[in-house]
Every structure is written in C-alpha cells, then in structure tokens.
Design a protein around this nucleic acid. Structure first.
Length: 276
DNA sequence: CCCGGCGCCTGAGGGC
DNA sequence: TGCCCTCAGGCGCCGG
C-alpha cells in the first residue's frame, strides 16, 4: 500500500532512468485506468513526448513531467506498480498499461486490484486537479510545523487516527505510517485530536517527520505488492514497531500489540504505551 | 462540519 | 489438487 515514502522512492528510482526518453507507443490493456482524457485521446497526446529530468510527487501522487507542458499523474492506490524494465521482460499478470520508450525499454503499470488511476494534463493544471487540489501540507515541507499541528488539532472534533489519514489535513500518510507515528508519540489512536496536550502534539509532529523520513531512507515498506521503479522491495517493514504486529511484544514494554478498528480501519497499537 | 458505510477489485488466509 | 467467507485499505461518493 504505497504511502508517501513508497511513492517518493518510486519517483526517485524512475527519475534516473526516464530523463530524456521519448514515449513511442502505448499499449492500453485496461482503458479504465485512464481517468483523463478519454483513452484514445490519452494515447494520441502522450506519444512523442519525452520525460523531463525532474519528476515530482504530491502526497501519494506521482507526477511524471513531460515535454510540451504536460504531466502524467499516477496514483498507485493499493497494489499499483510503475516499473521501468527491459522490453523483453515477460508481461506480468495484471499489466494494464505499457509505455514503449525510444531506447527499447518499457515503463509498465501493473495493478492487481485495478484501483490505480492515471491522468494526462497540462502541468500548470496539476495543482488544481481533483484529489490534489485539497491536499494538506507535505510532512517534510517547512509548512508542516508543530504550530500548524497544534492549531489544527485544537479546532477538530475528530479522533487523531482518522485525522492523520485525512489527505486534506496532511498529505501522504496511510495506515502504516499513521500507526507508527502514533506509537512513537505514545498517543492512542482513538484520542480526540483536540484533547492532546501540547507536549503530545509536539511528540506527534516529531514522530510523523521521523517515520516518513525513515520510510524514505529505507526505500519504503514492502509487505506484498510494493516495489520501486526498478522492481525492488523496500526494507522499512523491518523497522515497524506496531503495524501488522498484532500479538507480538511491544519493543518498548514487552506487552502484546493489539489491533482495533478506528474509523473503519485497522489500528495497531500498544495498550500500555498508548493510553486512552 | 463530521461520521459511517459502500463500491471498486483480487488474492491470501482461516475455518471447516 | 477444496470451498466459502472475510478482509486488506485508498479514495470518491452518498446519506444522516
């Protein structure tokens, strides 16, 4: 389930391969993944364009910048993969889009669950795209300050876990990194955001930044589906303290990690270290 | 504003 | 070398 660190890793790994390459043809095996424009127009417009040196990311959205002022926006959702590979690589099952490149290689989009989507639009319209327009600050941006978190938490009437998953509040956190950040800050996922102490908010701010930076440093978390732009797994799963660790001992106190539903999502936490 | 629930999908894993 | 059911969770959408 690609979250900010996974998406950032994909972008960085693709950047070094795609710069300057031209898209010569597109095989569209699953037209519904193209959200905009209509599939036929999509192919027509993207063929002949080259990837720029600098690709981008906003929240969990991959921004593949192209010549002629266009950007290919890709969201991997749950099981999507965007991988650069030699053309001879056997077509993996669930390969929905193949971009042929002028060096004979491929950029392939595969997605078991078919939730992932892509759009082609003018670069200057990306920030206004639905899904991107309302994103909150990037956790690693200078705009994501302790004061921002304090101010926003104070006026929200919701529990802290769903708030961390709300992309219009902070961009890029998903279930894994939200649970890890809460554990490291010793905050119970069901606590009301407005009721956190200044000390807790400060700790949570710090732990969000640390856990996201740690995820990027270890090239993402791979449980099953996630790989980077070269098909390589990440290793942050070895550094997780609570996520997917139900019944295992807490690294801090030794008590058993528990799983509850908060806002309809699994939340892993330590009932001793993260008191309600 | 805020919440819960559904739909989209496939495959893994548990119970029997 | 089964079968059925639940669940995994990102996001858009809908209704209360």
């Amino acid at each position: 389930m690609p979250e900010l660190p996974e998406v950032e890793t994909v972008v960085r790994s693709l950047e070094q391969h795609l710069a300057g390459l031209e898209i010569t043809a597109v095989d569209l095996h699953m037209p519904k993944v193209i959200r905009h424009p209509r599939p036929e127009i999509f192919t027509e417009e993207i063929v002949g364009k080259q990837f720029l040196k600098k690709l981008g990311r906003r929240g969990k959205y991959i921004l593949l910048n192209l010549t002629d002022g266009l950007t290919l926006v890709v969201h991997l959702r749950m099981t999507g993969r965007l991988v650069y590979c030699v053309a001879e690589t056997p077509l993996e099952k669930h390969t929905h889009v193949v971009f042929h490149l002028n060096n004979g290689q491929h950029l392939r989009f595969t997605d078991i669950r078919q939730f992932g989507r892509m759009s082609l639009l003018p670069t200057n319209q990306v920030s206004e795209m639905s899904g991107i327009k309302d994103l909150g600050p990037e956790p690693l941006d200078t705009s994501f300050t302790r004061e921002f978190l304090k101010k926003e938490f104070r006026r929200r009437r919701t529990r802290v876990k769903p708030l961390l998953l709300d992309q219009s509040f902070i961009a890029g956190l998903g279930n894994i990194y939200a649970d890890e950040a809460l554990f490291r800050a010793k905050v119970h996922p069901e606590r009301l955001a407005a009721e956190l102490s200044p000390r807790e908010v400060a700790a949570l701010h710090k732990s969000i930044v640390e856990v996201i930076a740690g995820g990027i440093k270890h090239r993402g978390t791979t449980f099953r589906d996630y790989v980077d732009g070269e098909g390589r797994s990440g290793s942050f799963q070895h550094h997780l303290k609570v996520y997917n660790r139900e019944g295992l001992p807490c690294s801090n106190c030794g008590k058993s990690i528990e799983r509850i539903k908060v806002g309809g999502r699994s939340s892993y936490y330590c009932p001793y270290c993260q008191k309600k």
